[in-house]
Design a protein around this nucleic acid. Structure first.
Lengths: 252, 252
DNA sequence: GTAGGAGCTGCCGCAGCGGCAACTTCAACC
DNA sequence: GGTTGAAGTTGCCGCTGCGGCAGCTCCTAC
């Protein structure tokens, strides 16, 4: 069955103006446009709208949402990825609540002591504040983060976006190889891994151990694992295995 | 001790540009400005910044944050209010994750059945999507919501903001009466409750039972209770009791 | 025909920033 | 003293994702 725009707006909680905006930007075209020019939506559009609104609730921008939805290999797997993001964001709010609880306890303690509150580790005041981003985090590799930031500073926004798009495309190609049943040490997978290695080397010298550790971070680092698993489940481990095989056969 | 703007930006995760913006808007003035024109922040500013960033993370706008922070009766109580909001928002994300899980289960079931997915209750697709707002919610009283919307439609934005400010001020006056130890049926409290009743009556006729139900909603309705408790703990029940006493002595 | 509701397109403006240019200040070095 | 580079300033512009509105069309009921 189908619904006119006012019905979809009512049931979803967004305005009709927003739905038209999403149509204009190509993010959510209606199922059909009647002879009267009115937009009509069906089940498939509702499901897509759900995904859009979940990702909006997580702070993802519209162009990025378009990329994520275009990259999905399977609808159920995409929803599983969103589910994981929601749980990760929920955990962040928990961490933020803990941060606030700690501040409360410290303020109460300083009142009991009758002393002004002193802050030994001011960074602790802000744990959990920054929202999790659907982006890579090289926090565990400061030299790479530094080199990546310097490199990004020399790019204009179009180049930065193209670079991010290429990164996503690489992950998608890897997912396709995985779903085609190729083992992580198969030649096409290793060719993709080689391209990834070369992109890193352009930034900064990469030892075998460094690259291996980066591979492990694909599974161990929350932001990285979330990014990979959002494409398709199992991709993070596949990427780690691909890097492990690459290091073993080509770097050592 | 104090910190220059770059240090505060580093430890908090916001940009120096944002901190200057907050100073310009009056939201977070620095502790002092040096002879060199540089901004320096102390512990008190860090604590205030924490509150600002928590509320930003919850989607609260800057003018509203200013009002909330101006309305706090006690810093620890304010933080307790933020803590409750964080937990409420965390629960909303949980609900949203449940919504996504349900969609996954339905999609998987329709695949098992080999049938296209049908949506009986499309509203269910969007449960938990809309963020909780720090605002009153008259959802349980549709006639009042309708009348309030019509009234707001005749106001320009300055008037709407003044109206919201007066509402917050009323809640603060009530909190002051409560912390001064006056019982809910004391004359000054009943005078405030009378003003609230009159403001409602201007919108729409209010029966005794209606007003009593609104009083109960101060405790039962999550958005309302959060708003009241953010001012000071116990205020929601105090407001309910004040309305109960008012209805008993003046409306019946 | 009229009135009112639903929906359209196109335009403008907002909130909360991020980025940048041009400038000042400061410290270290020669 | 001059130079250099880092840190910080103000003021301006532009971005994203909308919300609001004007002027219009279409449809239904009377």
């Amino acid at each position: 069955m189908d619904w006119p725009i006012s019905e979809v707006a009512r049931m979803s909680g967004v305005t009709a103006r927003t739905l038209r905006h999403y149509d204009e930007t190509g993010l959510l075209p209606p199922a059909r446009v009647g002879a009267n020019g009115h937009r009509y939506y069906e089940e498939h559009q509702l499901l897509r709208l759900q995904q859009i609104l979940v990702l909006r609730a997580l702070g993802v921008g519209l162009p990025e949402i378009d990329r994520i939805l275009a990259a999905r290999v399977d609808e159920v797997d995409a929803l599983r990825g969103h589910h994981r993001r929601l749980l990760a964001e929920r955990d962040r709010l928990d961490a933020l609540a803990d941060t606030v609880s700690r501040t409360i306890a410290e303020l109460e303690q300083s009142r009991k002591d009758g002393t002004p509150m002193t802050i030994n580790r001011p960074e602790n005041l802000f744990e959990g504040i920054q929202p999790s981003q659907y982006e890579d985090s090289l926090r565990d590799f400061p030299e790479f983060a530094e080199a990546a930031n310097q490199r990004a500073a020399t790019m204009d926004p179009t180049e930065v976006e193209a670079s991010q798009r290429e990164r996503t495309a690489q992950m998608i190609r890897l997912a396709e190889l995985m779903t085609a049943g190729l083992p992580a040490d198969a030649e096409p997978v290793q060719a993709e891994t080689d391209a990834q290695y070369r992109a890193l080397v352009e930034l900064h010298a990469v030892s075998a151990e460094d690259f291996r550790a980066i591979g492990r971070s694909c599974v161990d680092n929350d932001a990285w694992r979330t990014a990979y698993e959002a494409i398709t489940p199992g991709l993070a481990a596949y990427q780690r295995d691909a890097i492990e095989a690459y290091v073993t056969t080509r770097l050592t």
